[in-house]
Simulated scan of single mutants.
Amino acid sequence: MPLHTTALVLFSGGQDSTTCLADALSKYQRVETLGFDYGQRHRVELDVRGNILAKMRERFPDWAPRLGEDHVLTLAALAQLGGSSLTEEVAFAMQADGLPNTFVPGRNLLFLTLAGALAYRRGLQVIVTGVCETDFSGYPDCRDDTMKAMQLALSLGLERRLVIETPLMWIDKAETWSLAHRLGGEPLVDLIVEETHTCYLGDRVHRQAWGYGCGECPACDLRKKGWERYAAALPAGAATTSTR
């Protein structure tokens, strides 16, 4: 019997968190999900979450019994702090400290703290998050060292052993698409393309080969380049959503 059997997935409704959810469902007996409303410009990501979860249950019957309760918590204070292009109508740009202004200081630290509290209350052992140190914007709260420090702090502060799992930490966006394909084949890749949302501008009008988005913001740029590398590596004649 595996050491850990339950997990809480930080589930935004985007490509990365949906892939992490599929990974957790392939391993754990009970999986719950957690989203955050923090005044993000791309709040549409919260709107697509329910549809993704419903389609997960419908299209993957082996996973459906494992998929438990969904939770959404509000963090209005992050928007009140201001200064980020994810919470204010300002252009994407680099800051004087070398970080993009899409960085929301403390966001992932707060997410994990609240996830730890919820996991404590719900009796969940593993917290799964889609942070990555390979294809990312340099956010310090996405680094492996930060995750290890948060795991230690939560376990000590809650007097309960919690594990923070980061399935995407050392892979790029192309490899994330490949991971989704290994986990759920074309049905999962199709679901991610059609239903998830990653665009920072909240664009659900323009349908790209890799999904909906403006095609220009930093999140779309990463996703697009990853899709192109993933699609180029497919065997000749293999079907992808972009060619059907």
Rank of each mutant, 00 (worst) to 15 (best):
L152A: 15
G138N: 13
L112M: 11
D145Y: 10
L156K: 14
G211Y: 01
P167R: 06
G157Q: 13
K173L: 09
V128N: 04
I164A: 03
E186L: 07
E216T: 10
M150S: 09
C142S: 14
E133M: 14
L112C: 13
C220V: 05
R121N: 08
H197V: 04
G185P: 12
A153K: 11
C199L: 02
A174S: 10
L110A: 15
G185T: 02
H181V: 08
Y139V: 06
D221R: 15
L191G: 01
L118K: 14
R160N: 14
P140W: 11
R161G: 07
V126M: 11
T198G: 01
S178F: 05
W177M: 02
G211M: 02
R223I: 07
A219M: 06
C132N: 15
G184W: 02
A117H: 11
S178L: 10
W170F: 12
H206A: 08
W210N: 00
C132V: 10
A149P: 10
A115L: 07
Y212C: 04
R143G: 12
R204W: 08
T166K: 11
A115K: 07
P218F: 14
E194H: 08
M147C: 10
V189P: 03
F136A: 09
A149Q: 13
E186N: 08
L183T: 00
G213T: 04
L188C: 04
K148H: 11
V126K: 02
M150H: 15
P187R: 08
E216S: 10
E186D: 11
D145S: 14
D203V: 10
K224S: 08
L188K: 01
P140I: 10
G123D: 09
D203K: 01
Y120G: 05
E175A: 15
C142R: 04
D141H: 12
G184K: 00
L156Q: 14
E133Q: 11
M147L: 15
L124V: 09
S137R: 11
L168F: 10
C220H: 00
C214E: 07
L109F: 12
G130F: 08
V205E: 13
L158G: 03
Y212P: 01
G215I: 12
H206M: 06
L179A: 06
L188S: 03
A219K: 00
P187D: 07
T146M: 15
G185M: 05
I171G: 03
R182Q: 11
W170T: 14
P218A: 08
I127W: 03
F103L: 09
L152K: 15
E194R: 14
V163C: 12
L112Q: 09
R223C: 04
E165P: 03
D172N: 15
L114Y: 09
E195T: 02
A209Y: 05
V193S: 00
W227F: 15
G185Y: 01
L158E: 05
L110M: 15
Q208F: 08
Q208R: 09
E165R: 13
D221M: 07
L109R: 13
G184I: 02
D141V: 10
V131H: 02
A174H: 06
D203S: 07
E194W: 08
L110P: 06
P105K: 03
R143K: 14
G123A: 06
C199R: 00
W177S: 04
E186C: 03
L183G: 09
L114F: 15
A219Q: 02
V128W: 02
E159D: 12
P167G: 09
P105L: 12
V189E: 02
A149F: 15
L114N: 09
W227M: 03
